[in-house]
Design a protein around this nucleic acid. Structure first.
Lengths: 193, 193
DNA sequence: ACAGCACTAGGTCAATCGTCCTAATCATCT
DNA sequence: AGATGATTAGGACGATTGACCTAGTGCTGT
């Protein structure tokens, strides 16, 4: 129906279903139904389910990189970029309350399955981590930049996890506000020349 | 092998396996092997897998309540009790790095499965929430007690989630320290008489 | 018109899933 | 010893899983 090759359509559908239902709970039949394909010939495009997972992770890496680039381009400054990251929680709150954070829940599932791709999934976190750390460094927190990045990442994960369990929209708003306040109230460091 | 009725042994084994591998990924055969029972006669003790899940959740509610009572009894004051909660992250960090938080990951999985028991699982969070809120209230934060409780809960979830993905023990230590500092540096409110 | 290739439908395969049943075993009490 | 009820072993069930295969369809350039 949409544009893109069949392989891309399969990857996109699998991406959505892995997020909404989980990796193991999504079967070939589910993906096939989503793209109106017979389940049998998936092996022409992917020779195993793990290969579909790898394609989905690669797709998410790409999507994440694109989002980070767009935020960086649109941001008035480093702090504004970080605020775009935080804003993700508000923009996607409906989905987050139902299915959690796509990255966090996938990493958690793959960790339980002891899956070989768990490191690849965690690499998406690294994308956010270094991107955030760059911005904290630009704000003058060179020594703490990585720790601050992980702190922001950790709070976004906590907000998503608890929002999924509690189904509480006001909780998200309150904690997002607190996270923005934390960013604004960071002990000032000497700005870069 | 251990004490307790067969039903309790099954529940305990399922509890451990649901935590380590996940609910859906754990089969009757897995549980049967763990308690040295034939898989067939589970239906004498539980008439469905959902019933085992309900028993596991009830067991975790019980365990949680007992832990909270113990912490309350051992604590020198409200703040000391909250510190026991935070200490859980350090005490269980090895397991957390491999399987995440038992409550958070179960809630996330049940949310994706759209399982009827997701509310029951989330009730364990409520146990922590009200217990923490009581202590924040005793510290004089009557109006914000619930919000503070959720904030502490959210950070514990974020730490667990990211620790699972990153497998970084130093990260846990650093964030636990930051969480304790947050607790100590809370704006002082007038103490209760 | 024809050959060649990209792609698909539909079915088979063994394995495993949760569920269910029955015959045997165990412990306890009369 | 014999009867009774609780507990278990072991298998069978239909459905579904990921994996695999082959016979095709439809488009391409010649």
């Amino acid at each position: 129906m949409a544009a893109g090759t069949t392989r891309d359509q399969i990857t996109a559908a699998a991406d959505r279903l892995f997020y909404e239902r989980g990796f193991e709970a999504t079967s070939f039949a589910d993906i096939a139904a989503a793209v109106n394909l017979s389940r049998g010939n998936f092996y022409y495009h992917f020779k195993s389910k793990d290969e579909i997972l790898a394609a989905v992770i690669a797709r998410r890496v790409e999507t994440t990189r694109a989002a980070l680039d767009a935020w960086a381009a649109a941001a008035a400054g480093p702090a504004d970029g970080i605020r775009s990251f935080i804003g993700m929680l508000v923009a996607n709150r409906a989905k987050i309350m139902r299915h959690g954070c796509p990255v966090g829940t996938l990493c958690a599932e793959l960790a339980k399955l002891d899956h070989a791709a768990q490191g690849d999934a965690a690499a998406i976190f690294t994308l956010f981590r270094t991107w955030l750390a760059d911005r904290f460094a630009a704000l003058g927190h060179g020594a703490d930049a990585d720790a601050l990045a992980l702190h922001a990442l950790m709070r976004s994960q906590g907000i998503a996890a608890l929002a999924t369990a509690l189904h509480d929209e006001a909780f998200i708003d309150r904690e997002v506000e607190a996270l923005e306040a934390w960013l604004d109230d960071l002990p000032q460091a000497p700005a870069r020349p």
